[in-house]
Design a protein around this nucleic acid. Structure first.
Length: 255
DNA sequence: ATGGCTTCATAGTGAAGA
């Protein structure tokens, strides 16, 4: 079972890249973030022609999440039930006996902003909800753009980023709170190259200079940890014309 | 140097992303 998560930063712009990538990579379940499309605009037919059923929850301009699977996922749930929110950031579904939770964590903008407080409140609600979900679904994976670099090795210059949004202590504590539920960062279950990142600023040639952060993650419950076989970040799309600023993360579980 | 680039939006002294 190959799981993937990708912040596409506009599905409208990235659809051709996504369809090529699906054909090449053949993942079994894909979580997308920042689709930036209302549900009426979602390219369900194009993706079905590419061999994937889609569940989606979007809005125009910002946010929006989707779950692509070979067979339609069941028991679709949207948003955090304990956190009323106009922003469309969560979609969960069941596929092949696995509960797949797609999330797009708020960015936070700066640690001084209201958006940062919203991010921390949102993460607190996420943790509360996931604690319940894990009891219901022991075989659970959380995939998405967490907008948090959990450790120093996940930041190209930890001194520069100390205390900044995406790497501040409260955000990293919130991430650790998710791990304390019994979730594992599947990428770190395996040996990885140094300077493994999933996001690079569009500006200043950050990708070419390898100035990135690892903020996209695939967390797996303890029941899935034992069957995790590999995990990697796929940078093959970052060199294309009009790339997303995020690279896909891929984790493979034994069948 | 609080910018740099990209997207979606509107025609803003743009907003927001990360």
């Amino acid at each position: 079972m190959k799981l993937a998560s990708w912040n596409v930063n506009s599905l409208k712009i990235r659809l051709p890249q996504l369809i090529d990538w699906l054909a090449r990579e053949e993942p079994d379940a894909v979580c997308l973030q920042e689709t930036k499309l209302e549900d009426a605009e979602f390219p369900a037919l194009e993706l079905e022609a590419a061999g994937y059923k889609a569940a989606f929850f979007g809005q125009r301009t910002y946010n929006g999440v989707a779950l692509l699977t070979r067979d339609a996922a069941s028991d679709i749930a949207i948003n955090l039930p304990n956190f009323p929110d106009e922003q469309k950031r969560v979609l969960a579904g069941t596929v092949a006996g696995l509960r797949v939770v797609c999330i797009y964590v708020p960015n936070g903008q700066t640690v001084a902003s209201d958006k940062y407080r919203y991010k921390l409140a949102w993460l607190d609600a996420l943790q509360g909800w996931l604690a319940d979900e894990m009891k219901r679904y022991p075989r659970l994976a959380v995939l998405g753009d967490f907008n948090i670099a959990p450790e120093e090795e996940d930041v190209y210059d930890p001194r520069l980023w100390e205390g900044k949004v995406l790497f501040s202590k409260p955000e990293r504590t919130a991430f650790r709170g998710l791990l304390e539920l019994g979730l594992k960062d599947s990428f770190r279950l395996f040996e990885q190259p140094p300077r493994s990142f999933s996001w690079w600023d569009y500006r200043m040639n950050a990708y070419k200079r390898k100035l990135g952060l690892r903020i996209d993650h695939i967390l797996v419950s303890e029941e899935l940890e034992g069957i995790a076989r590999s995990s990697r970040i796929d940078t093959s799309l970052r060199g294309l014309e009009r790339p997303s600023d995020h690279a896909p993360v891929i984790t493979v579980l034994a069948d």
